[in-house]
Simulated assay, not measured.
Amino acid sequence: MNSGAENPALYRVLKDVLERQAGVTSVRFEPDAIQKQYLAAAIDSQRVVPPTGPKLPQLEVHWKLTPPHDEFRIDYADPNSRFHCGWHHDEDHNDLGAAHFQYQTASKEAPEYERVVLEAASPPKLLWECCDELFENVIPDYTAEP
């Protein structure tokens, strides 16, 4: 991500959004509560559909205030299934537009990228929208047995 400023007040609001997700067991500031460079949420592997193994999946949220448009990364990783995905609003894949979704399964050697249009405008609503999509559609659809 490009340079920009982390906003401790925004991270407190985003932490609240994560704590309201049914599968989230804990949320912490990283590297610590003073610096607040990003959020890390532990996910109950038995609450996702389909349930995975004993290790806890993790959801990380990085948000930088970079006028005129914030940059963010909302990344999910499950060490049990080796599934990784995320929504990114940055300059890494300009060919896909302002935001993209990327994912990688255990059977793929490289991530795949898709253009995405997010409907929400505010950071808390964007995070909520991505979490809804993650738990309701992405994990079940992308990790289902063939």
Rank of each mutant, 00 (worst) to 15 (best):
M1F: 02
N2Q: 07
S3T: 07
S3L: 08
G4C: 10
N7H: 00
P8Y: 02
A9T: 10
A9K: 13
L10Y: 09
L10E: 10
Y11N: 08
Y11I: 00
L14T: 04
D16Y: 00
D16V: 06
V17I: 10
L18S: 02
L18N: 03
E19C: 06
Q21P: 06
G23E: 12
V24W: 03
V24G: 03
S26V: 01
R28P: 00
I34R: 12
I34P: 00
I34L: 05
Q35H: 01
K36I: 11
Q37K: 10
Q37T: 03
Y38S: 04
Y38W: 12
A41W: 04
A42Q: 14
S45E: 09
Q46I: 08
R47F: 13
V48K: 08
V49W: 13
P50H: 08
T52P: 11
G53I: 01
K55D: 08
Q58D: 02
E60T: 13
V61Q: 08
V61C: 11
V61A: 01
H62C: 00
K64G: 00
L65C: 06
L65A: 10
T66A: 04
P67I: 01
H69N: 10
D70N: 08
E71T: 06
E71K: 05
R73D: 09
R73V: 10
I74D: 05
D75Q: 12
Y76I: 05
Y76G: 03
D78P: 01
D78L: 03
N80P: 02
R82S: 14
R82I: 04
F83M: 09
H89F: 06
D90C: 11
D95Y: 10
L96Y: 13
G97W: 12
A99C: 15
F101P: 07
Q102M: 10
Y103W: 15
Y103F: 15
Q104P: 08
T105V: 12
T105F: 03
T105Y: 09
A106I: 14
A106T: 12
S107C: 13
S107L: 14
S107A: 15
E109R: 15
E109H: 13
E112K: 14
Y113H: 15
Y113R: 06
E119V: 06
A120S: 15
S122V: 11
S122H: 10
L126V: 15
L126S: 02
L127M: 07
C131H: 04
L134N: 06
L134W: 05
F135L: 01
P140V: 05
E145L: 14
E145H: 04
E145D: 09
